[in-house]
Computed example of a mutant assay.
Amino acid sequence: MTRTLKTIFAITLLNLCVSMPALSKSAAEERAESDQMVQESLADFKKENGELASKINGAVGYAVFSNAGINLFVISAGGGHGVAIDNISGKRTYMNMGEAGVGFGAGVKDFRALMVFKTRESYDKFVESGWLFGAQADASAKAGDKGGSAESEGAVGDVEIYQMTEAGLSLEATVKGTKFWKDKDLN
């Protein structure tokens, strides 16, 4: 019973921290920080995979998210923020994300996700409804430039998904549902 209460408390605390609005930042400052995260993350992804630049340029659009996640025994949760970019119109849609899942594992990690949308339908559906379900297995132990990680890359329909760990320690195998939604304060 105590373990269950600790798990519920940790997940609730994580979700509160991720979903709380920044009290001292303006919307313009938050957009600028998100845009900077996108540029830095894209540079890191392209450094790791040279083919991504042409995939992104040839796509209808793409999205980059920064996410922090926690996995405690059989429950996982996480949340973050990001930007979806329409390559045709240039429009940026600022978004939030939250995820929950079940599986086995333990750990906490900070990671970046890149989604490349091959069709207009897949991009529009993502921006408007934002659900994504999937299975994930990974192991990571990383702090700064030290350590290593093994993340999954995959495709869901007309969307290619890439993930890169920034920092953390985790070993997990989970089935997750992730909800993405427009940030009403930044759009």
Rank of each mutant, 00 (worst) to 15 (best):
A155F: 05
F117K: 05
A150E: 06
S129L: 01
G157N: 10
K118L: 10
K91P: 05
A113V: 13
K146H: 12
Q136C: 03
M115I: 02
L132G: 08
A143D: 01
E153L: 15
D145I: 11
G107R: 06
S122K: 02
R92E: 15
D110P: 00
L114Y: 04
G147V: 04
W131C: 01
V156Y: 07
F133V: 14
G134K: 08
R92Q: 13
A137F: 10
E121H: 08
G147P: 14
G144P: 04
G148A: 13
V116L: 03
A150Y: 07
R92W: 02
E153A: 11
F133I: 10
M95E: 10
A141T: 09
G157S: 04
K91A: 12
E160H: 03
E153R: 14
L132M: 13
A150L: 14
G144C: 02
G107T: 06
L132N: 12
R92S: 09
M97C: 09
K142T: 03
G130W: 04
K146E: 11
E153K: 15
M115L: 11
S129A: 03
G147L: 03
L114W: 09
V159H: 08
V127L: 03
E151V: 11
G103M: 01
E128F: 00
M115N: 02
V159I: 15
